[in-house]
């Protein structure tokens, strides 16, 4: 039993070591900006624009549920304009960034791992290297930078959608006036409510893309290996989002 635990801890530490090396290699490749700059724009569209529909969907329905949940909690105990407060704080600071990024761990993380994994097992990654390209600057840097920059943008749109559906739900299903909803929304508002969520999203984007690239490039075997890498990328990314979420809360709240 003790050996099993020791082995697992050793494997975990080795995993962090590999991650550290990978990040180091990526940082060194930043100098090769002639290669990654143009490719980053393509990835920003793929990761950013193409992820908007699922992100808006997640946030919109979260807004509806949050408004109804607030009514359920507050009825008879707390003034109803606090619905706006709860919807605003929860969507901007926690549920918007975390739920959207968990969904994007599936969409973006899986897509990166599957794409790079397929390239690895079909020797396209080797072919890139033989054409004198650095795979970090050609494949990894554009994806990681694009995700880091685009995730806060996606989350900002998603948060807006969540607030809108929260407001619509409040005025149509809870009989709360727009004035009361906005009063609640502004009640304890601080600028930190916004940047805290966006900062978290940035870190989630960085992590999801990094793990997707790492798992994809380390794929071994054929289709089964690609499937395994993709699953691992999603599972590890989702876990890391929750860990980072807690870490940001400890550090900044």
């Amino acid at each position: 039993m003790q050996k099993v635990i020791t082995d697992q801890v050793a494997e975990l530490l080795a995993g962090f070591g590999r991650l550290g090396n990978f990040v180091g290699d990526m940082a060194r490749s930043l100098r090769d900006f002639k290669v990654w700059l143009g490719l980053t724009a393509v990835q920003m569209r793929r990761i950013g624009v193409d992820s908007l529909p699922i992100s808006l969907l997640v946030a919109a329905f979260t807004g509806v549920v949050l408004a109804l949940l607030s009514r359920y909690i507050f009825t008879g105990a707390v003034p109803m304009y606090f619905v706006g407060t709860l919807v605003g704080k929860a969507i901007m600071m926690e549920l918007g960034p975390v739920l959207v990024c968990l969904a994007l761990a599936g969409r973006v993380g899986a897509s990166i791992a599957a794409e790079l994994g397929t390239m690895r097992v079909t020797e396209q990654v080797d072919a890139l290297e033989t054409l004198a390209y650095d795979i970090q600057s050609f494949l990894v840097v554009p994806r990681v930078i694009a995700a880091t920059l685009m995730f806060p943008v996606i989350v900002a749109f998603a948060v807006t959608a969540g607030l809108l559906t929260g407001w619509l739900t409040s005025v149509t299903l809870i009989d709360l006036s727009t004035v009361d909803f906005l009063k609640g929304l502004r009640l304890f508002y601080q600028f930190k409510d916004i940047w805290f969520g966006l900062l978290k999203s940035m870190s989630f984007g960085f992590t999801i893309a990094l793990i997707g690239c790492m798992k994809g490039l380390n794929t071994r075997g054929g289709a089964e290996g690609v499937g395994r890498a993709t699953t691992q990328a999603v599972v590890v990314s989702a876990g890391m989002i929750l860990v980072l979420d807690a870490l940001w809360a400890v550090l900044l709240l």
């Binding site: 079909t122 020797e123 396209q124 080797d126 072919a127 890139l128 290297e129 054409l131 004198a132 650095d134």
Partner: peptide, 23 residues
């Protein structure tokens, strides 16, 4: 080093078993 390897690779053409074209 990385630059040396890049210079070496630019002198070599590699034809892969399944072509390894970028699909």
């Amino acid at each position: 080093d990385a630059a040396g390897l890049r210079a070496l690779r630019s002198k070599i053409g590699y034809v892969f078993q399944f072509a390894a074209l970028f699909d």
